[in-house]
Computed example of a mutant assay.
Amino acid sequence: MKAIQVAAYGSPDKLTLAELDDPVPGDNEVLIDVAAASVNPIDWKIVSGAMKAFIPLPLPFTPGVDAAGTVIAVGRNVTALKRGDEVMGFIGIVGAYATRVVVEASRLARKPASLDFTSAAAIPAASLTAWQALHEHGALRAGQSVLIHGAAGGIGSAAVQLARLAGAYVIGTASGANGDYVKGLGATEFIDYRADDFAKRVAGVDLVLDLIGGETQAKSWSVLKPGGTLVSTVAKPDLARAHEAQATGRHFATRSDGPLLENVAALHASGEMRVHVESVFPLFEAGRALDLSRAGHVRGKVVLDATASKTA
């Protein structure tokens, strides 16, 4: 098999494509022939070393949390999947940037036939994060209002659609060029964060989904109604600010969940959700893909094509 290797923390241009032995699935695992893997901000944060105090990893390692492909071997305890099944999943914190990977079967969902592998790889981590933020931590209900910062990115795109499906009034912030895109996903209102101050445009929302952090999070307390909730995927909310705003602040790490992913995949299969893939790179250009993600302003997702590297 071939896999991207991180031999030392630092710039993505130091990544290399190495030839490794095929992994062997454990009792509760499956071996996947990877067709595609998606790029997430956590990937370049891990590669840079910014997360090593929180996520210590032995070097070298293979980055990547999302994969889609075909099962080619199963562990002895695995009964829900078999050889030949096409699957997708948030596989863990590393390992997806490879042509083959072992994954716990419970982390995987079957890929709907109507989705290609590129789209399927782009869905798991972003959509699971959006679902858990809105429903498990934000307790979003029909008729409520939600402000989503970073609404054009991978998580934001999924969150806008899931909030719309939940019957919420959705306000999205992003750069002006993404206005039509965010509204097309289901946002009722759009705010260009470069041109407008959202804190002067919005008031009394039930939920803020913070995908940006920093000053954006700090200003978001002022737009919440008493009893509202701020959920952040990027930084722990300030408890003192939450108290002042008579609101609740929550921060969480995304949970891999095969059955929940099956439900989200079904929404994509039915056309109720869609995923936008901005760019596709061959696996051996993973460094370029990470640089694009790190630069910010990606609309939707960036995906790596693992099949292009099997003969490279």
Rank of each mutant, 00 (worst) to 15 (best):
A199S: 15
D33C: 05
S222M: 12
S127R: 00
L108S: 02
A306Q: 10
L115P: 00
G89M: 09
A265C: 13
G69P: 12
P124Q: 05
K14F: 10
V24I: 08
D206M: 10
K45Y: 06
V71P: 03
H297A: 11
A177P: 09
T233I: 08
G10I: 08
T16Y: 01
T307R: 15
I55P: 04
E189F: 08
H251R: 10
V74F: 05
A174S: 06
G150F: 00
A286M: 01
G204K: 09
L20W: 01
H243T: 13
G64F: 03
I72Q: 13
V170T: 03
A174K: 02
V74G: 00
K200R: 12
L57H: 08
K219H: 05
E86G: 14
R110P: 07
V303G: 05
G300F: 02
L224H: 04
W131D: 08
F252M: 06
G138H: 04
G179S: 07
H149M: 05
S127Y: 15
H297G: 04
V78S: 07
S270V: 11
L304K: 00
D13R: 13
V87D: 10
P56M: 00
R274V: 12
A53Y: 09
P124D: 14
A163Q: 09
A187G: 08
I212L: 12
H137T: 11
Q5V: 04
V6A: 02
V78Q: 01
A247Y: 08
A177Q: 15
G287L: 09
D43M: 00
A253R: 15
A166V: 09
A235P: 07
D206F: 06
F281L: 11
G214P: 06
G69Q: 04
Q132Y: 01
E19G: 12
G186H: 11
Q161A: 12
L283G: 09
D33E: 15
S293C: 04
A166Q: 06
S106V: 13
V47Q: 07
I46W: 06
A96F: 07
G150A: 01
P259G: 03
L261F: 02
K310A: 06
T70V: 15
V24C: 10
A174C: 03
E86Q: 14
S157C: 10
A312K: 12
R250M: 06
R241K: 15
S293L: 02
G184C: 11
L207A: 10
M1R: 14
G64Q: 03
L230H: 06
W131Y: 13
K219S: 08
T118F: 03
I46F: 09
K45E: 10
I148N: 02
A174V: 07
S157T: 10
P23H: 01
T229K: 09
G184V: 07
A126E: 07
A235T: 14
